[in-house]
Design a protein around this nucleic acid. Structure first.
Lengths: 152, 152
DNA sequence: CCTTATATTTTAGTTCGCTTAACTATTTAG
DNA sequence: CTAAATAGTTAAGCGAACTAAAATATAAGG
């Protein structure tokens, strides 16, 4: 931990960038009338393309009843579409509407607005160095065995 | 935005790292019985060293009444200390207890556990490249004019 | 002193997100 | 065909977190 300066630097950057990003993001979410659960749901649906009610509940760590109720609100806000699964008529398929996608993307943009300010303070050489480094990180992270979901 | 590949890469990394970090962190917070508001409060107090009730409320975007109530819960959990401000006896000084600091640090550790796995996949050369890059980012971010708080 | 402003707490009431339990509909297994 | 499993919804109720308004205490200015 404190013995490895590399990990320490990585942690430091995550700490700094998460602080900046989260503040902007939470501010945006509030303004849009979305709770953290809503956001988490929209992100999951976006990543998966489509998903079921119970599956989403498991992902978020809540019961299927809670998931159903939350999705009902998102349907009313026209952020998601909830249709019958043709393969199994007990199930539902949840997908984002265009509005849902738009809201999510605006949130991401709000979250990352400070990056534009940061970018302006960098020289072309610095940008190049950073870009190479980040591409390594992104690539290695993608190949990390643990596929992100302990899924409880 | 999509025209600048540098910003796009920066955004991509933030997106990936936030997803990983947030999932671990939220899981830890739940297990500790802390809400996102509690976490936000503890972080703010930790960063500032000490703060007042209304000031914290403003930071979190809630009324001083809500702030007072939340702090009462944190006092009961022995995560913070609430003492009279000797300079102005109307006010209170909020500081973290040792337990509060410990809980917060454990949360950060939980949040960043995946970084150890990531680090193992990197060569010494890659680590060096990345470290140089991140140090530039950390340094430039610190000097960013906007001192983080729109404070509404 | 007296008034006004500031800092926090208390009270009452609302809303939100969650749970459990009951219910409907559909699929799967025997 | 029937029984059991699965997917989702609905209803009742609970606790957390918020607000507005009132109460308390202190500070600051004339």
């Amino acid at each position: 931990m404190q013995s490895d300066p590399f990990v320490a630097t990585l942690e430091k950057w995550i700490k700094v960038s998460m602080h900046r990003s989260m503040r902007n993001f939470i501010h945006y979410a509030r303004k849009s009338g979305l709770s953290m659960s809503h956001i988490g749901a929209l992100f999951h649906i976006h990543r998966e393309g489509k998903c079921g009610v119970t599956e989403l509940g498991n992902h978020l760590g809540v019961t299927s009843a809670a998931s159903s109720q939350m999705l009902e609100r998102l349907v009313q806000q026209e952020l998601i579409l909830r249709t019958e699964d043709p393969k199994d008529r007990r199930g539902k398929q949840i997908v984002l509407t265009d509005k849902g996608i738009r809201v999510l993307e605006e949130g991401v943009r709000a979250r990352q607005r400070w990056l534009d300010d940061l970018t302006e303070t960098l020289s072309d050489g610095e940008k190049e160095t950073i870009m190479v480094a980040l591409e390594i990180l992104i690539d290695k992270t993608r190949n990390l065995n643990q596929p992100i979901e302990p899924e409880s």
